[in-house]
């Protein structure tokens, strides 16, 4: 069998899945379902972003909605208040969030475990309070309205279907770059730090530098997710960036499983869809939401896809590297 056919066959699940996502809006005419899928996409970006920290390098960050909010406000304020083009604002959302990630990461990443968790939680609360109280700058509790729809190099993203494709494209880029990143030398260094920080340092891995870099990259992606949210919903207020959002992200990783590429995607899809699927039981739907989490934690404490390395089958792009991690670092944790 020729190699290219083999590759195509091996990647067929991924290709089929992508094809299904592209075809979905033409099959599903219901705008409500499309909107759910748009939100799932945004949470996939956020979960992938948090996964880099919580899953790959083993930092416990629990204030990710802070970066999400910074991204959303950056993009909204640049387009609404200063009339910046969407492309610039969108990128700036990631860059500004990344800059805050650096500013937070530099002093706090020498902290471990619960201390770092508290620092990130505090950061989330500070961001929320600033958004809420700095009335002259952020609009305070009144929020920002009339945020323009995305317009990417002449493509006016006006309809829901276009918005869906826009978010799908961003998700695809984020997931692809993230997969490449964690499969690289950089990604292996992160996992080495996660497994044993001292051993990694002894091998010449600059632990603090890698931590700060991972933090900045993660914040960048969260900022991008914020921009996607702001321009999809077109009205933002501090309500959307509270600790509750950070906890939803943690729940997504706990449910889907962290430390691999598939877990965050599945987790986001399930946790965002569940409250909508259970609408029939109105008052009890959040109860069922909690029940699902408890059951999964009982049956699979590592999360649905946790404990294994699922790589989105990017073999097509780099066979050599894949071979490298197949052999050593990426064995499932319980095998070590």
């Amino acid at each position: 069998m020729p190699q290219i056919v083999k590759n195509a066959l091996e990647n067929s699940p991924l290709i089929l899945f992508l094809a299904a996502l592209v075809a979905a809006p033409f099959v599903i005419s219901n705008q409500y379902v499309l909107q759910i899928m748009i939100f799932i996409g945004i949470y996939v970006i956020l979960a992938q972003s948090l996964n880099l920290l919580n899953g790959y390098i083993g930092l416990i960050a629990i204030g990710h909605a802070g970066f999400y909010g910074i991204g959303a406000y950056t993009s909204a304020m640049l387009t609404v208040d200063m009339g910046a083009p969407f492309e610039v604002a969108f990128l700036a959302a990631g860059l500004v969030a990344g800059a805050f990630g650096w500013a937070l990461g530099r002093p706090t990443l020498r902290l471990e475990g619960i201390y770092l968790a508290l620092a990130t939680l505090g950061f989330n609360i500070i961001v929320w309070l600033v958004l809420l109280n700095w009335n002259g700058f952020t609009g305070g509790p009144l929020g920002i309205k009339d945020i323009p729809r995305p317009s990417v190099f002449g493509w006016e993203v006006d309809t829901r279907i276009e918005n869906y494709f826009f978010v799908l494209a961003v998700v695809a880029v984020v997931v692809f770059t993230m997969a490449r990143l964690v499969n690289s030398r950089f990604g292996r260094a992160l996992v080495a730090i996660r497994e044993d920080q001292l051993a990694a340092a002894a091998m010449g891995v600059n632990v603090t530098r890698y931590k700060v870099q991972a933090f900045v990259i993660s914040a960048f992606y969260a900022g991008i997710a914020g921009a996607c949210y702001a321009h999809s919903v077109r009205y933002i207020s501090p309500d959307s960036f509270t600790m509750l959002e950070s906890f939803i992200l943690l729940a997504i990783l706990a449910l889907g499983g962290s430390g691999n590429m598939i877990g965050p995607i599945v987790g986001a899809a399930i946790l965002i869809a569940i409250p909508e699927l259970f609408r029939a039981v109105s008052e009890y739907r959040m109860l069922l939401y909690g029940l699902v989490l408890i059951i999964v934690m009982q049956v699979r404490p590592q999360g649905l896809f946790g404990g294994h390395h699922y790589d989105l089958r990017l073999r097509l792009f780099d066979r050599r590297q894949r071979k490298a991690y197949r052999g050593d670092v990426f064995l499932p944790p319980e095998a070590m």
């Binding site: 699940p13 089929l16 899945f17 299904a20 979905a24 099959v27 599903i28 005419s29 219901n30 409500y32 379902v33 759910i36 899928m37 599945v266 899809a269 869809a273 909508e276 699927l277």
Partner: peptide
Amino acid sequence: FAAAVLAVAASLA
């Protein structure tokens, strides 16, 4: 998972 997503989408219509 792909099948599940489509099934969910169909049930929501």
